[in-house]
Write a protein that binds this DNA or RNA. Structure first.
Lengths: 229, 229
DNA sequence: CCAAAAGTGTTATTGATACACCCATGC
DNA sequence: GCATGGGTGTATCAATAACACTTTTGG
């Protein structure tokens, strides 16, 4: 892929021009696994390989807007928890040119994904993070980084809220924690801690599916949620 | 400042070309205050205003190398704790062109700064973070962001270690925590916790300055230090 | 002997962990 | 009536917080 010398040259200050991309690790929890959305590359380089979704930063667009745009293109979801993850810029990370990528991670509750199984824009699929294939560019490194950030933050912030729908059972909440932290918790202690945190309130509704006692449904008190650095 | 149209144009994919800078918030603790290094801008835009140190990313250089280069240029210190902070990219953040900046923060023990008072490369100075002047570009926002990240991390990681010299007294360590967290601690409980953490070991040396009982000097067990996301 | 900072233990409170049985529903 | 997940309390242990006096040195 040849490019115009001018394009790959220097900026007004005499330094290298670089391209900027925004790449996303989009998480959801389904089937008791932490899953990430991957896309199959249609063009060179790494044509045919899986990668995380992303794209070039457009003119006049903020980094966050670019991330939101990519998220919506690939998932159909407009609003979700979105956090800047890290910026990767090794000179050889893209064989074509100097490209630095600002990465974000997004959390989407499985239930909010429009027809997740059927829609399937071809070449887009969810993978349990432990079984992800080898990815294009340095995307495997980015995915690993996102997973460990998510694990760390689940321990000291309210971040898992991004993975749950409006109303949920305490057992759903516990399952999400267990899947992310890869560790199981005592049911009584877990419920005690969650209710004591003051971040939850009962919706008054009950979940009636299944041949067993219906579960109380809860929601988050939105104004109480704090995430940290 | 006019620039060549070609330079401000698009990359191989047809999207906007951007310049990438690396900017640093360099912290130290001195005179019982958390201080940041600022530089007075010599050229437009914002000529004459204070800003945080930074510069364009050079060809073939990693982001981390660029950050280290800027740190060394401004402080003379080569090795220090350096952590990527955040990437800022609002389209209007630089009036000249589209510039996104990858920011880092650095921690340098006051004692490791070469002749901090005298060297004073002109136009470079330390400011207590609470008394910093209004800064060029969005640098005030970046400084605030760095301060709050540092405060948060001091609470759950070993990060303050970056602000202490090889050997230090427990009272030095306590002072650094107090300055960063802006909160004072009980001496006995503080010492108990620090010694119980297992991260410190006595050097066997004593600090003999001052007309009072000499203090035991401690150092960090380097291999025990963990920082997080 | 005075000033200045170093060093040291006990008690009370709080939060975390371990642990097992009954309840409400659908079929 | 049985299978399925929902829901509950207590005792122990560990971590944290509050609190004041003696020691060592230089001048």
């Amino acid at each position: 892929m040849p490019y115009n010398k001018c394009e790959m040259n220097t900026n007004y200050a005499g330094y290298e021009q670089t391209s900027v991309t925004v790449d996303l690790v989009i998480f959801t929890v389904s089937q008791d696994r932490l899953q990430a959305l991957l896309v199959r590359r249609a063009s060179e380089p790494f044509s045919g390989q899986w990668s995380i979704p992303g794209g070039f930063l457009h003119t006049g667009e903020t980094l966050e807007q670019a991330a939101q745009r990519v998220m919506e293109e690939k998932t159909g979801v407009k609003e979700a928890y979105l956090e800047q993850l890290f910026t990767f810029g090794r000179p050889e990370r893209d064989p074509r040119a100097r490209v630095i990528t600002v990465t974000y991670f997004a959390l989407i509750p499985w239930k909010r994904l429009p027809r997740p199984e059927s829609t399937q824009i071809s070449g887009v699929d969810w993978f349990p993070v432990e079984d992800a294939p080898r990815l294009a560019f340095d995307h495997s490194e980015i995915l690993d980084f996102a997973v460990s950030r998510l694990r760390a933050k689940a321990g000291y912030s309210s971040i898992v809220y991004g993975l749950l729908p409006e109303a949920f059972r305490l057992s759903d909440l516990q399952k999400v924690y267990e899947v992310i932290m890869n560790h199981s918790f005592d049911k009584r202690n877990f419920r005690k801690r969650m209710l004591a945190s003051g971040l939850l309130e009962p919706t008054g509704q009950k979940d009636l599916v299944g041949a067993h006692r219906p579960a109380m449904l809860y929601q988050f008190k939105k104004h109480e949620l704090v995430f940290f650095d």
